[in-house]
Every structure is written in C-alpha cells, then in structure tokens.
Nucleic acid binder design. Structure first.
Lengths: 369, 369
DNA sequence: ATGAAAGCGCTAACAA
DNA sequence: TTGTTAGCGCTTTCAT
C-alpha cells in the first residue's frame, strides 16, 4: 500500500507537507504542490480513511438501521440515505434488525464501535433504546417514529388512519376490521375517524390482532382465512338455530384495513381463495403505497408514504447536526399522508348507505396514482 | 470516550494487559480478568474499531456495490450479503451506481480508501474495472457476471433465455420480439433456443433494442407502444395497397421477451393501453421473478433467479477468500434458472402450431411458482 | 513555507 | 503473568 511516507520520501519532502498538499492547505509553494500531486497520481495513492478517522475522530460514516431491506418500503428510504450521504462525502453502513430489539441494540453497538458520525434509525419497536442512544451521544435521526430527544421524520400515521376511515365511511361501510397492532397511531386515527362519523366502534370495529412476528403477508393471509371462516361458521350456526335475532356484534365486516400493503395483499389472497369478491363484497385498504400496491389486481387502495422523502430529510437533518458546531434542538418533521384510491374499495351496494348525497364526491374523483 | 487507557489507569494495570483481556488472550490471571472486565462493563466501554483496523490492517468491512437498491431484484441480494457478513463479524458498506461506470469506479475507490476487506460487486456494465480491481488486490466476488480473475456467482442466463424460447415455441409461437440488450447471454440463449426449434431467427425474431438508460419499466412501456403502433401502421398500409403479398419479415410478433420483470411489466401496461389481450393475443415473458411478477395481472411468466442465494454464496466465497491464508484460485458458481409459468403466456390459438402432439407436455404441467 | 515531533486507540514484539 | 516500547497512517501543533 502506498502511504504518505512513500510519497514524502520519493519527492524529498516531509510527510507533513504531503499531508498539507493532499488536504489542499494553502500554505504550500505551487511548484511543490504540483510535483507531489503528480507523484501521488502516478503511484495511484489513496489516503487511508481509517488512519484519518483515528486522528480526526470523525469517520464520515453513517449507520442506517432498519428492520428489513427486503421489505419493499425500505429500499427507497435507504436509497435516499445513501444519495444524500454520498453528496456530503459520507458512506453508509447498513444493518437489518428483523424488528428485533436485541438485534437493534447489537447493531447500534457495532456502529458506535465503528465510530459512525451519525445514525438513521427506524426503530423496530415503539420503545427503542432511548437511554442508550442518549448516553452514546451519537447524533441520531429517527424515522417513522418520534421522540423528544432526537430529530425525527415521519408521516402522520394518525391522520393516515383517519383518512382511511373517512374514505370507507363515505363509501357506506359501517362494519370494519383492522389487522395489526392496535397501539399503532394509524389504528388510533382510524378509530377516531369512525367515532367522528358516529360509527359505534365498540360493536362495529373488529381488531384482528397479530403478534409482531406474524405481521407479514403470510400472517395476514392466515388470519383472514381464519376470521372469515369463523364468520361463516357463525352464520351457519344461526341458520341452524332457526333465524335467531341478529347480533350486531357478529356482523361480518365489509371492509378490512391492514397496517401495510404487504399484509393487505395477504388479505387479498385469502379473500380470493375464499371466493369473496373485492371490492364488491369486501373493501381492502393498505398502507405505504409500495409499487406492488398498484400492480396487484384489484389494485390496492392505500395511504402513500413518501419513502424517499422520509429518508432524504432524515439524512439531511442528521448531517446538518453532525456538521454544525452549535447545539441544535431536536427537530420533528411530519409529512402528510395521501390517500390513494384504487380498485380495492368501492361504494357499498348491499345496504343503502346513509346520507348518500353528501358523500358522493369522494369515490368518483378521489382516485390518484 | 472510554479508552483502554482509562480502564488501565483505573484498574492499575497496563493498557497491554487490558487489551489482552478484552481479546480473550489466555495468559492472564483470572482475578485480573474479572476485575478488568467488570470495570469495562461499568464504564460501558466499547473498543474503537477504527484504531483496531489501523493496527491490524483489517477493517472487517465488506463493500457491496450494486446498481440500485430500489430495483426490486437487489434488496434480497443485499439482505443475504448482510446476513452472511454479520454472521462472520463483518459490517456492510452499501453503494449504488445507477448502472454508471463512472460512479462504480468512484465507489470502488472509496471502498478501497476505507480499507474494506472485500467487495461484492454487481458490475453495472459488461466490462467492469477489471484491471483496476486486480491492481487494488482487494478480494472481490462478482455477482450476475463472471470473469476469470475473480470469484463469481451467477444464474445461467443463457440457459434461462433458452428455456423461455423453448416454452414459447412449445406454445406454438413462431414470431417473437426481444426487448433489451442483444449482447446479454439470455438473449443469446433465447436465439439458440429458437434456432434449435427451426425458427428462422433472421426473419422471425425482432430485436427491440433499448439503450442502457432506457432499460426501465418506463422505457419498455414507451418502446412497446411505439413498436406496436408501427405494426398497426404497416397493416393499414398493406390494406390500402390492396392486400399485397404478406411479407414474412413484417408479421407482428405473438410473444415478447423482456430482459427483466420490471420491463415486462412496462410491456404489459403498454399492451393494456393498446387493448392487446395478454396472453391471448400476445404472450409476455420476464426475467428475475421479483415479487411483483406474481402480483400483476395477468401474472407474469418469468425465469426465477434465486437472488438471496446469489448474495449468500458470493459473500461466503468472499469471506472464505479473505480469511484463508492460502491463495485460492477463482471459483465460478453457476446456479440453474427456473422457468415459472404463469398467466402471461398461453398456447397460441390463431394458427395451428406445428407438431402440436410432441410439445403438449410442457404448458400443462410446467407451471410452478 | 516547511520540518520535527507528538499522538489518535489499539496491538504485538520483546523484556522482565 | 505482566509491563514497556514501538508503530499502524495520518494530522497538527510548534519550531524554524
């Protein structure tokens, strides 16, 4: 390996001078500069970033910690991080956690030992390692989640959920199911939307819970199969009982809201298998607006998150913080979600929707993407 | 930052001893070991990987250079690289080149200056920076492309193309178009397959070339629109000329083979817009078998590449080379492609296929996915 | 304008 | 078994 010493020796100057020249220090004679630069080029010299990091205690390395790059939501995020990082002369260390808090902690530890200058973190759980992060004093930008102590960038999931609720209510739906984690703000927003529309959530909103590990396309597929069969069973039981009074609680939902597109696609597949027509018999809504959402048939109504934007902004905040000498108070950026109406939702036919006239506008012109 | 010195001072031993303890060196008294380890834990000490790299001249860093993580083929590859790397105690530096030779060179330079121990490279062009790579003496594993000087892992694209040709011929197709780069082995395999089936490629195989920059979903979409309109125009001209003799050369193809799934989806979209029915009027075949391929309607017949496997094997070869003290001659792994028959191809109806009987087997039981 | 020297945090000879 | 010393490649005072 060619080092600064080699160049120094061969050009008859001191290593210090070579260093100054390579770093564009102004106080060197032009002739020397030329000679040394020429030599460096000839020797195909490349500075050793490791040595540089050691002395400067700045690595120009950024860590990106995400749940899983195979999940179609993240490639765009990571791409944005890398783009912005590269623009500013940083390289990117990538780490997957599989939504596992232990692995997240481990990754953060490795990044710290590698002296990264900053970390873009998509926390795998609601409560990440805040104390640890704070103590480590590495600048951090949180993505899709927020916390008073750090910069954060997210879309307004609460509002996203609210938009979905409004959309479905406008289409005449009154009984709906949610698949995923009920602590998620998008669920809370959804609930709020129903309440605002006078839907009795206690009876008309089903929570089809899924453990963290099963929050996948496959998990949603299985869960939908199971739940739909339960309703089928119920119907038969009632028929056998000879037309017992219809229990409101047990009405089959006419719409399913899954917490991400991948899970919504699992729902779609289950319904297809069961012969339940989408959107006529069941509306399905996802979240994220990944590419797949537009490609599946019926195309998925969903809430768009600007994934590249999220990554870009987070990285910009992070680098600004790294390179600023002043203390910057944490900033919290919230991006607006956007409802993308496609073929997986339509006006409910079976029962006449209440107040049809006042709601007509949405489904017809609300389509985008 | 807590250093080895701090621990040494506080525990009253020398830095060397602390280092030995932290590295599990056997020649230390158990009592000391316990005391020092305890202290290190209390101080939340974490070794400085940069300093370590400098002295050991091993960074335990792997570079991954790919065209674009947003392209759905690569996340699985990268995921595999990261998984294997992590298993062996390596971290991963990610870099996107956008199929740009200049950026590829730049990325490789940065990785070298960062002293990565090895590089997994998906070359953006047919001819990558072989000389540069050889001179730099960094272990490299090539992905999806091969070269005598380096380890390489790829699926047999030639054979993949051949399989597609065979499949289409078996379905009775005689006029086909290829979208992409004619230098690609999968195109050559396709051609070979047609020749073996006695199809006169000079007249019956159209090459719809696309420049590197346009080799995208959008590019394929535009190209298909254009080409199909040309055929339409031709037909009208012939009609005007009063049923002139049918020129073999100008027969509209009944099948299109795109060089990857994204482009095939572009073709699908164009055909949908033009009202050309797939698969009845036009068969479409892609390559890669990304998730989207199964989700679009009609679902895409394609050639599956085991992307995770590719990444896994490449990384294993790479790490083996890094950690071996002996010289290892370059290894070249070729994985078998697998034809996945879905809804976008079907038996041609219009004209009776030649030798129907002998070909019947494939389309009926060849379905997989 | 240039050189000498010290040191970033760690490891590894060599001594003791 | 432990400590002393040197040095990885580079930058940065402090002299000159």
């Amino acid at each position: 390996m060619v080092t600064i010493k080699d160049i120094a020796k061969l050009s008859g100057v001191s290593p210090a001078t070579v260093s100054r020249i390579l770093n564009g220090h102004p106080t060197v004679s032009p002739e020397l500069r030329e000679r040394v630069l020429q030599l460096a080029r000839e020797l195909n010299y490349q500075p050793n970033a490791v040595a540089r990091s050691l002395v400067s205690s700045r690595s120009r390395l950024l860590g990106v910690v995400i749940p899983d790059i195979s999940n179609p939501f993240f490639p765009d995020v990571v791409r944005a991080v890398e783009d912005v990082a590269a623009q500013h002369g940083y390289s990117v260390l990538l780490s997957n956690t599989d939504w596992n808090l232990y692995r997240e902690k481990e990754s953060l530890g490795i990044l710290r030992s590698r002296q990264v200058d900053g970390i873009v973190l998509v926390p795998s759980q609601v409560e990440p390692h805040l104390d640890w992060l704070t103590r480590s004093s590495i600048p951090v930008a949180l993505l899709t989640r927020t916390n008073p102590s750090f910069d954060s960038v997210e879309t307004d999931h609460f509002r996203g959920g609210y938009l979905v609720a409004k959309h479905l209510v406008d289409l005449g739906h009154t009984h709906m199911a949610v698949i995923g984690d009920t602590c998620d703000p998008k669920y809370k927003g959804f609930r709020e939307g129903l309440i605002d529309a006078q839907i009795p959530v206690a009876t008309n909103l089903y929570s089809w819970q899924l453990s963290k590990n099963d929050a996948t396309q496959e998990g949603a597929y299985q869960l939908t199969l199971q739940k739909m069969r339960e309703f089928e069973q119920l119907k038969q039981n009632r028929a056998q009982a000879g037309g017992m009074p219809t229990d409101q609680q047990l009405e089959r939902p006419t719409a399913i809201f899954a917490q991400n597109d991948l899970m919504a696609i699992g729902v779609l597949m289950a319904l297809e298998e069961l012969g339940v027509k989408v959107p006529e018999e069941m509306a399905v809504v996802g979240f994220d607006n990944i590419r797949l959402a537009a490609a599946v048939r019926p195309a998925l109504t969903t809430v768009a998150q600007p994934s590249y934007e999220l990554g870009r902004i987070a990285t910009e905040l992070l680098i600004e913080r790294i390179e600023s000498r002043r203390e910057i108070p944490p900033r919290h950026i919230v991006l607006e979600p956007r409802l993308v109406v496609r073929g997986s939702t339509t006006r409910l036919r079976q029962q006449a929707p209440v107040e049809l006239s006042s709601r007509e506008a949405i489904p017809d012109h609300g389509s985008s993407a």
